[in-house]
Write a protein that binds this DNA or RNA. Structure first.
Length: 719
DNA sequence: GATTTAGACATTTTT
DNA sequence: TGTCTAAATC
């Protein structure tokens, strides 16, 4: 046996047990920060080194491209060479690969293209219009959600009952029409990738047998995030095979609303009864107080498999809680602490500000900008999703496949070339009547000679443009992309635009050419890839690129709690810990969704390594409305002894504007001043309003919390 | 075809 | 309150 000490040296007992377990079905329940991915990576190295597994026989699945990249990188680092032959990727990426290799058996055209969420949305919208269905009763988003949810359950229209009522029947009809439209255009959406891949194996036992034979080892990360179709796909590959290694954490399941089912973990235990269960409970990330808070919080959830994290570390600093006057004060406080942290000599990217919803980022951005602290917001628009990029992609798709209506609609009048709504309506009507693509409809209408000559010429010009672009098929990918951009007239169009973003757009277009150059350089023709252009388009759809550049820069990190999963930071702020915001109002009714919110809070807390700040505002402007939220119930789930309340020290010059707002002097107290009350004891003045006899102050009492008191009656004394 | 204006609406997001 | 989309108007 080779020396395997490098694989095992830095592992604890439980990790080692998981890594070295004999090949069989195995479930690793791994808590936050317990070295989950590590175990997976080391397991693969172990299989290669000790079990004599060939890289060829290993399939490792993750959810995001980022996770897949990281896994590949770490495997390479550990075994000292790129993992050639191994299948490491996302569910969608692997399904795509499978379908490219077996397009015929999957019933797809060879050059099939992938619809991203935006393409899908447009298609649904177009369909609603075409079928003259009221988009107020059937909002495109909901229709899309319906279709995706059904596909994620593995259900085709023919499996579904029309429910008898008109609403359901219409949805079903839309689903059917949508499928036909996709088929005509030779396109498939994200959910379809998975469903097709599963059907491919189910309907072709020979193919399935081949892959079952090949993949002697199947490993899955973040198993709690699998949806029904993903699990079904994995089951085909692994059931009765004794080769299924899954890692997951039921407490970190936060994507239920996207079809992920935690129950799959339990189901796993039933379907793979011989599976060994290993728990990883030692946490290497957070200090004791943070961990205890997380444990206490998550214990309030009823449906859990049970797990308690511990650390060999000390208690560390207490968790700090700040009750802000309002959302502006909250941002001020957070940024002040961030600044302090930076002044202590820490890197900016060691600090993260987390929030429940994206809208909350604005105030923090403003405060950071004011303070001159560089920051990065995650979750913005991504490169391949930019309008101008998608325009070019539209042309490219049309070049690959003339019947791709989604590409056609995108490119046909962008830049404007005189093909207006009337011409397009005629095209759509013809396409619908004859069940053909827009491209063919255009051809037929032109040839039929029943068109106004101006529209006819414009349309003909477009068709010829696409055909011409198709001729230099032998050129390098980036040259092709470049000439398409050139021929399309987009650059000239953006140059003319005076909205201030034209230059940006043009720059993005040349970046696209660069991306194509880079892709072509690394692309090695694989037998299952038809051509470079198709492969490039697949990449554009499946890996939409990063949200923002400047990744290398040292920036304070701003993101939602969801996108923080899998990350860690020495200093973490969780802002807006208020009822209706977190847990979100829309989840408050349903106990299951509430548990998911709590898990989300658990995820947030466990991101913190050394310092954790929680904050809420006592008044908050929400949708232009002044609200007075109550502190989140999650705060009550954390034992008070772990929390240190940060005293409100108000800036002296805090503007106290607004009609009817009393100057504090007028009330007789100052913001931040300590006062005592005969019954409530001592506290700090937080806020004031009204004047004269109706003047009220808000006082945060040490023992009984914050209260509004009418000054005239309260008998407050400075102390 | 561009620009303005009114109205709706406001979790979380990857692929 | 701020953003986004669609209709209305130039």
């Amino acid at each position: 046996m080779d020396d395997v000490s490098h694989i095992l040296d830095d592992l604890n007992e439980a990790q080692r047990e998981a890594v070295t377990a004999p090949v069989s079905d195995l479930l690793v329940l791994a808590g936050a920060g317990s070295g989950k991915t590590r175990v997976l990576v080391h397991r693969i190295a172990w299989l290669l080194a000790v079990e004599g597994a060939s890289p060829w026989s290993i399939l490792a699945v993750t959810f995001t491209n980022k996770a897949a990249r990281e896994m590949r990188g770490r495997i390479e680092q550990l075994i000292g060479q790129p993992p050639g032959g191994m299948w490491v990727g996302t569910f969608h990426g692997l399904a795509h690969r499978l379908l490219r290799a077996h397009w015929r058996e999957a019933g797809l055209p060879q050059g099939f293209q992938i619809l991203d969420a935006d393409d899908q949305f447009r298609l649904v919208k177009r369909l609603l219009k075409q079928l003259e269905i009221d988009d107020a009763r059937w909002p495109p988003r909901q229709v899309m959600g319906f279709i995706n949810a059904r596909k994620e359950e593995g259900l085709r229209p023919q499996h579904l009952d029309d429910g008898g009522d008109f609403y359901q029947r219409t949805l079903l009809r839309l689903y059917t029409e949508y499928e036909q439209a996709c088929k005509r255009g030779g396109v498939i959406d994200f959910a379809e990738l998975l469903l097709r891949a599963q059907e491919l194996w189910r309907n072709h036992p020979d193919l399935l047998a081949h892959y079952r034979e090949r993949f002697a080892h199947v490993l899955v990360d973040e198993f709690q995030d699998t949806n029904a179709i993903q699990f079904a796909w994995l089951r085909l590959l692994t059931q009765g095979r004794g080769n299924f290694f899954v890692v997951g954490d039921d407490d970190q399941s936060i994507y239920g609303w996207r079809g992920a089912r935690v129950e799959h973990i339990r189901e796993f235990q039933q379907l793979y009864p011989d599976a060994r269960l290993i728990r990883l409970e030692q946490n290497y990330r957070s200090s004791g107080n943070i961990l205890n808070a997380a444990n206490a919080l998550i214990e309030k959830n009823a449906s859990r498999l049970g797990k308690r994290l511990w650390t060999a570390d000390g208690d560390g600093e207490p968790i700090r809680l700040y009750a802000a006057f309002n959302e502006i004060d909250e941002a001020r406080f957070v940024i002040e602490r961030v600044q302090q942290f930076i002044d202590e000599g820490h890197r900016r990217d060691e600090a993260a500000i987390l929030y429940r919803s994206n809208a909350q980022s604005r105030l923090f951005e403003e405060a950071l900008r004011q303070a001159g602290i560089p920051y990065r917001v995650y979750g913005g628009q991504r490169f391949f999703e930019r309008a101008e990029i998608k325009d070019v992609i539209g042309y490219l798709r049309l070049i690959v496949n003339r019947d791709d209506d989604v590409g056609f609609e995108r490119a046909v009048n962008q830049p404007p070339r005189g093909i207006g709504p009337r011409t397009l309506d005629a095209l759509r009507a013809h396409a619908r009547d004859f069940g053909c693509s827009l491209w063919r409809a255009a051809r037929e209408l032109i040839d039929g000679g029943r068109m106004a000559s101006r529209a006819r010429n414009a349309l003909l010009g477009f068709l010829e443009l696409i055909d011409a672009c198709d001729e230099d098929g032998d050129a390098r990918l980036d040259e092709r992309v470049e000439s398409v951009i050139e021929a399309s007239g987009l650059v000239a169009y953006f140059k003319k635009s005076r909205d201030g973003r034209g230059e940006d757009r043009i720059e993005n277009l040349s970046e696209l050419v660069e991306a194509a150059r880079g892709f072509a350089a690394t692309y090695e023709a694989e037998s299952d890839e038809p051509d470079v252009l198709t492969a490039f388009l697949g990449l554009a759809a499946l890996e939409a690129g990063d949200t923002q550049g400047a990744e290398h820069e040292d920036c304070v990190q701003l993101m939602t709690l969801h996108s923080a999963k899998g990350l860690e930071f020495p200093l973490v702020f969780i802002a807006g810990v208020e009822e209706d915001l977190f847990p979100h109002r829309m989840s408050a009714e349903d106990p299951e969704r509430l548990e998911e919110e709590r898990r989300l809070c658990y995820v947030g807390i466990t991101r913190a390594m050394r310092q954790l700040y929680l904050s809420y505002a006592e008044t908050r402007r929400l949708h232009g409305q002044e609200t007075t939220p109550t502190p989140s119930r999650f705060l009550r789930d954390i034992p008070p002894e772990l929390i240190e309340e940060v005293r409100a020290v108000a800036p002296v010059s805090r503007p106290w504007s607004g009609a009817g707002g009393a100057g504090l002097a007028e009330v007789g107290f100052q913001l931040g001043q300590r006062v005592s009350h005969p019954r409530f004891g001592e506290g700090v003045v937080l806020n004031a309003e009204g004047q004269g006899r109706s003047a009220r102050v808000q006082v945060n009492f040490e023992t009984s919390g914050s209260k509004w008191l009418v000054v005239a009656f309260a008998n407050l004394a400075p102390c």
